[in-house]
Nucleic acid binder design. Structure first.
Lengths: 331, 331
DNA sequence: ACTCAGTATGAGATCGATTGCTGAGATCGG
DNA sequence: CCGATCTCAGCAATCGATCTCATACTGAGT
């Protein structure tokens, strides 16, 4: 396959390259007859435009970076999956960027994406987003954050209502008869993590019992520590809410290792609604976040901001997803 | 931040743009004194070269596509994670492309990557790779496949030894005292999937018992069906090998729903060695694939082929990873 | 027949880099 | 002291597109 530039198509079609260019990107500017002729020729040659050259000249591309801390975390994986779809439905090409939580890398991706003339980007942060840092890049005006951001309302965001989610979880557990409900965080850094914890603290002390945080670390061992803590208590809670599904898995696994059964001995809930949860043992009761919606909305927000500068903050509603990891408290 | 081109740096440094270019990409071709001066100026301006313009002119870039069927599958996620690292250790930038198993999309990515002048690409297929289709793209000469390929040895590959993996699993189970060992596939399409199944069929009939395939579908419900099948048997196997960890999870989950406990009632093994397995309930005994090595080697192979045209086929050794989902058979 | 508006295409500069070629000055042996 | 060799840096073409401007042709109105 020889080198296929716009010029060879132009020659083959007997027109100037600017006409070929127009035939592709501004169809109304060329007589439909010539246009079809050109398109046919191009098709025959198997020609497609160079996105590189296009981006260089236009100073805008269709590359949309999605910056996530860890693709191994199913939440981000599911997000990436739905966003890939959402992106190319709209003619963008999603570029997945994994930071491993390194803020330096995040900045690196930003400069790279700026250099690639990305029209905007989506960030699913692992820490509270520093909006000022964001703005150091031209690009900063065109980022949508999947988390709350502090004070500064100039960056569009999409989140789910953490408080409502925790409320749903608490209500579910209470309706089952639980009165002593523990919490394990396992995540931290983001506003979302903070919000969930705060909501738990506030709501659980409101009704009756006192809040009981089994662990508040954010490393992968949080689940194991929480289980250990649970085992050492003389009066352990009859139900546990984990800040996300992954932590819930870890808790259940660690508990299981010590012979504690879920939900017979303790009920455990997650927060995320990962597809994986349906195949856990037992299938995980959880608070579902509408991940697919988040992806779509993030892109919509970005487009909108790009178009008319509007900055929206969308808060989605979580919903309860009852599977098998919760039941009435053991008598 | 004004537009920063090579020319503005050149002007600021009082040299010609070609000198700036050389200062960056051919350091030995410019007097070290001038070079440092230029670099300092550039640094001060916060200048970085446009990868777009570079790629366009050089006709080669540092974008390396990793094409996977589904990023939601932790195997591919882990692969992507380690490869991202491996790639940018070597100065490449990994572009994650998700096909959802659609071969059309795969081809789309190929043409896109060709247009981006990617030096090579890595494919983790969901079907047997059609090497001819691969070669229709110039690009076809520069792809590394993470699976076996049929006959055609002209495409570098990296895989783990499926037969040996199954052997390890069988041996482990047998050493525990199991004689009736079932299998559930849950994957299909790739040579790897085929090889695991074949190895099971062959090796399990070799020793004593007859092979017992509980399910051979490849959809997400394979686990559930296998469990159903198990329950309906009058003489169910005492151990089950799943073709990969995800399927093992599903089997255990489905079994658990019917009150069958692992490993007390049946032992179940996976194949992959996902990090997730350590936090399953119970932690999953499995055959570990050296995923990180696969990623590194894939890139090495690609580079080597690019350099001297050599085509290697690396087969890695799997290893047994004993956790808690296996034990001696129930008496 | 002539101007004027309007449409369709061509010419050529440009985006931000790379690179072969050329020439200026430095170095050096004889 | 001179020509040969070597370094180092500038010039200009080039990669594959876009886009403003200019030009040719159409047809309508008078």
């Amino acid at each position: 396959m020889a080198d296929l530039s716009i010029d060879v198509v132009a020659k083959a079609a007997g027109v100037h390259r600017s006409t070929v260019s127009r035939a592709f990107s501004r169809p109304e500017a060329v007589k439909s007859e010539t246009r079809e002729h050109i398109l046919r020729i191009a098709e025959g040659l198997g020609y497609t435009m160079s996105p590189l050259a296009q981006a260089l000249r236009r100073k805008t591309s269709t590359f949309v970076p999605l910056i996530v801390p860890d693709i191994t975390n199913p939440f981000f994986a599911e997000l990436a999956k739905t966003m890939t779809q959402a992106a190319d439905d709209r003619g963008y090409q999603l570029l997945l960027c994994v930071t491993n939580g390194d803020p330096g890398k995040t900045e690196g991706y930003f400069t790279a994406m700026q250099a690639m003339y990305a029209p905007f980007g989506i960030v699913a942060p692992s820490t509270k987003v520093d909006t000022d840092a964001l703005k150091r890049f031209d690009f900063g005006h065109k980022v949508v954050v999947i988390d709350r951001v502090e004070g500064d309302a100039s960056v569009p965001t999409v989140t789910v209502d953490s408080r409502r989610g925790i409320m749903l979880a608490l209500a579910h557990l209470q309706s089952l008869g639980h009165t002593s409900i523990g919490y394990v965080s396992g995540i931290s850094g983001t506003h979302t993590a903070q919000d969930r914890m705060d909501a738990y603290l506030e709501l659980s002390s409101e009704g009756n019992g006192t809040p009981l945080v089994l662990d508040s670390g954010s490393d992968p061992d949080a689940g194991a520590r929480a289980a250990k803590h649970y085992l050492e208590m003389e009066n352990p809670p009859t139900a546990i809410i984990a800040a996300n599904d992954m932590v819930a898995f870890a808790v259940i696994s660690a508990l299981g290792q010590s012979g504690i059964r879920v939900p017979e001995d303790v009920s455990v809930m997650g927060f995320d609604g990962l597809a994986l949860g349906a195949r856990f043992n037992p299938p995980l009761t959880t608070v579902r976040q509408p991940i697919a919606d988040m992806g779509n909305i993030a892109i919509e927000l970005a487009e909108k901001q790009n178009l008319n500068g509007s900055v929206d903050h969308v808060v989605l509603e979580p919903e309860l997803l009852v599977r098998a990891s919760t039941s009435g408290p053991r008598k």
